[in-house]
Amino acid sequence: MFILVNLKTYPCDPVAVAEAVRDVDDGSDARIAVAPQAAHLERVAETGAETWAQHVDPIDHGSNTGHSLAEGVVDAGAAGTLINHSERRLKLADADGAVRAAERAGLETVVCANNPAQIGAAAALGPDAVAVEPPELIGTGTPVSQADPDVVEDAVDAAANVDPDVAVLCGAGISTGDDVVAAADLGSGGVLLASGVAKADDPRAALEELVEPL
């Protein structure tokens, strides 16, 4: 089970969260990674935690002021990247370009989408995984697996119909170990979450609670 913790721009200590991710990952059967802000990538990667970028742009080396270059996040220590998160939406052509840029740099990719129909389109881009995240549930503490489990099952089916090698992650509202188990029972290969860990008073305890049922 893959657990990807997105720190967004929350006012947390990214290094402390990364150290918790590293330690809990070492002691569990789950694979756990953390996606900090771009400015924190190198410091987070130095902890030894699996580190992901929150975004890369569909660009190559050149005149691209203010953009995020895939090779740049690799140099900072990233192993993968989110693409098309609901808070960083891309046009389809740009999402495709971002996946290609990530592939060029050797980054693993998770393309986010709002619903099963979009999951099918995202899977067609050929990422390593897609993540279904209904925007209305993000940050609510109500997991999609509980609010509308059909969304997860339909997303798994939509991805499988396009490319059975593309894994499906379940996002939005994930905060407990029961949520992780429910996502797995619905066919998800992992979860994408943020506030449940990034806003926790004790990130390590929050992570341990997530993986305990596994």
Score class of each variant (00 low, 15 high):
Ala53Gly: 15
Glu133Ser: 01
Ala198Tyr: 08
Gly126Met: 06
Glu19Cys: 05
Val168Asp: 03
Glu71Asn: 09
Gly80Arg: 03
Glu212Lys: 13
Gly171Asn: 08
Gly196Lys: 03
Gly80Val: 07
Ser188Asp: 07
Asp157Arg: 15
Ala105Tyr: 02
Val191Lys: 08
Asn115Lys: 02
Glu103Arg: 15
Ala160Arg: 15
Lys199Ser: 12
Val152Leu: 02
Trp52Tyr: 11
Asn161Phe: 03
Gly62Val: 10
Ala198Glu: 07
Arg31Val: 13
Val99Ala: 02
Glu212His: 12
Glu50His: 05
Gln54His: 07
Val180Asn: 08
Cys170Phe: 02
Asp150Thr: 11
Gly120Pro: 06
Glu87Phe: 08
Glu133Cys: 06
Val181Leu: 13
Leu92Pro: 00
Gly97Val: 12
Ala35Asn: 12
Asp154Trp: 02
Asp128Glu: 13
Val162Asp: 01
Ala45Asn: 07
Ser195Cys: 04
Ile3Thr: 06
Pro127Leu: 03
Asp201Tyr: 01
Leu186Tyr: 10
Val44Thr: 14
Val17Asp: 03
Gly80Glu: 00
His55Cys: 00
Asp23Phe: 00
Val73Cys: 07
Glu153Ile: 05
Glu153Cys: 04
Leu90His: 10
Leu169Arg: 03
Leu90Ser: 12
Thr51Trp: 08
Ser68Arg: 09
Gly141Asn: 10
Ala101Ile: 08
Asp60Met: 01
Asp60Arg: 15
Pro14Val: 09
Ala194Tyr: 02
Val21Ala: 04
Gly139His: 01
Thr9Trp: 05
Glu133His: 05
Arg88Glu: 12
Val15Thr: 08
Gly77Ala: 02
Gly190Val: 07
Ser188Cys: 15
Pro127Val: 03
Glu19Val: 01
Ala39Leu: 15
Trp52Phe: 12
Asp94Pro: 05
Arg31Leu: 12
Asn114Val: 06
Ala113Ile: 04
Ala38Val: 13
Gly141Trp: 05
Ile3Met: 08
Ile138Met: 09
Val191Met: 04
His61Phe: 14
Val168Met: 03
Leu207Asn: 01
Ala124Trp: 04
Lys199Trp: 00
Asp165Gln: 10
Pro143Met: 10
Ala78Thr: 07
Gly171Ser: 03
Ala131Met: 14
Ala45Pro: 09
Thr109Tyr: 08
Ala200Gln: 02
Val44Gly: 09
Asp75Gln: 13
Pro149Tyr: 01
Val74Ser: 03
Lys91Met: 13
His55Gln: 14
Val73Ala: 09
Leu169Thr: 10
Asp148Gln: 11
Gly177Trp: 07
Gly177Val: 06
Tyr10Asp: 14
Ala123Val: 09
Ala172Pro: 09
Gly27Pro: 01
Glu87Gly: 10
Tyr10Ile: 02
Ala101Lys: 06
Ala93Thr: 13
Ala33Cys: 10
Asn6Ser: 08
Gln37Ile: 00
Ser86Phe: 14
Leu137Ile: 04
Gly27Lys: 13
Ala35Asp: 09
Pro11Cys: 05
Pro36Thr: 08
Pro134Gly: 11
Ala131Thr: 12
Ala121Ile: 14
Arg204Lys: 15
Ala16Ile: 00
His67Trp: 13
Lys91Thr: 07
Ala30Ser: 12
Ala194Gln: 05
Leu186Arg: 14
Gly141Glu: 06
His67Ile: 00
Ala95Cys: 11
Asp150Val: 00
Asn115Ile: 01
Val211Pro: 02
